[in-house]
């Protein structure tokens, strides 16, 4: 496994694992021979074309789809915080954000407030879930996942429906959460050209794992080039997340600024998109 920037690999707690995983729907094999694992403090991003099995891989790990061959499992004691790909509340169901937060388990008002505050949406506490924008919904769902005090965040296209500036801010937030809490993060990217720069490992999926590695390696991998073409591969962009400050102290700054306009990044990080060939690390 590839380690993070600060820590060496090997000594971290394993959170989830797939070995020789195959999944079939109606006799058709949609995933086969998938090996992967994810450890605490690690960010793994899955990319691939539509229908390549990204969401299916995530669902197999969570036990939501039956496994045809091999294994897909969460390690015992791994608490997950899940943000599913599709989430919409019908207007027939009256549901406010604070009630959504306690959907599967009760929580204190303080804990709910703190979780919403952490992701910068404390002001939405009494809002109807059906009235939220795409970016607001994703942040509320992230707060809900955090409220469970997870070891592993599973985010299926977390920046869908989010504008470009909001996308950068959301990626920055996910990176901060990993740094602060030592979470493992398993993320499905909505855009095969874009992965967050703090990603430790990219899995390029197309029914099987085409290639895997750090983002810059994957973008040069022959399988990746074959799958997406040289032209597309050349545009593989990475959100850079500069670690030029201490995140442990930084948390307070975030709290001061929360509640304002969250569509821009408050934290002074630089988010550029780089062509992978410019060598981001």
């Amino acid at each position: 496994m590839i380690g993070g920037q600060e820590n060496g690999a090997g000594d971290r707690r394993m959170l989830a694992r797939a070995q020789g995983l195959a999944v079939q729907f109606g006799g058709r094999t949609v995933l086969s021979g998938v090996d992967m694992d994810i450890a605490a403090g690690e960010i793994v991003t899955i990319i691939g074309p539509n229908g390549s099995g990204k969401t299916t891989l995530v669902k197999a790990l969570l036990g939501l789809v039956p496994v045809a061959r091999g294994r897909a499992e969460l390690m015992p004691g791994t608490r997950i915080g899940y943000v599913p790909q599709r989430f919409s509340i019908d207007a027939v169901l009256p549901l406010r954000v604070d009630r959504l937060m306690t959907l599967t388990a009760p929580a204190s008002a303080d804990a709910i407030g703190a979780a919403l505050e952490r992701v910068g949406v404390a002001h939405l506490r009494r809002a109807d879930v059906a009235s939220l924008s795409g970016g607001e919904t994703q942040r509320v769902l992230l707060a809900r996942a955090l409220l469970r005090q997870p070891d592993l965040l599973v985010l299926d296209e977390p920046v869908q429906g989010v504008d470009f500036a909001g996308e950068a801010a959301l990626y920055a937030l996910i990176g901060e959460l990993r740094d602060e809490m030592g979470l493992g993060v398993l993320m499905v990217s909505h855009d095969l050209h874009v992965v967050m720069a703090a990603t430790d490992q990219v899995l390029c999926l197309n029914g099987h794992i085409c290639c895997a590695g750090v983002p810059s390696d994957v973008s040069r991998h022959p399988e990746f080039l074959r799958l997406f073409g040289r032209q597309a591969a050349a545009t593989l962009a990475v959100y850079r997340h500069d670690h030029d400050h201490d995140h442990d102290l930084h948390g307070h700054v975030v709290a001061d600024e929360a509640g304002g306009d969250h569509s821009t990044d408050h934290h002074g990080h630089d988010h550029h998109s780089h062509h992978s060939h410019s060598g981001h690390e």
């Binding site: 669902k59 969570l62 036990g63 939501l64 997950i80 899940y82 599913p84 989430f87 509340i89 169901l93 549901l95 959504l100 959907l103 599967t104 388990a105 469970r148 599973v154």
Partner: peptide, 19 residues
């Protein structure tokens, strides 16, 4: 009640969280 509501809001999310 709580489990049924969770399953109604988003079945996958509820199942992933042990409902």
């Amino acid at each position: 009640w709580r489990d049924l509501l969770a399953a109604t809001v988003q079945a996958d999310l509820a199942k992933a969280e042990g409902v």
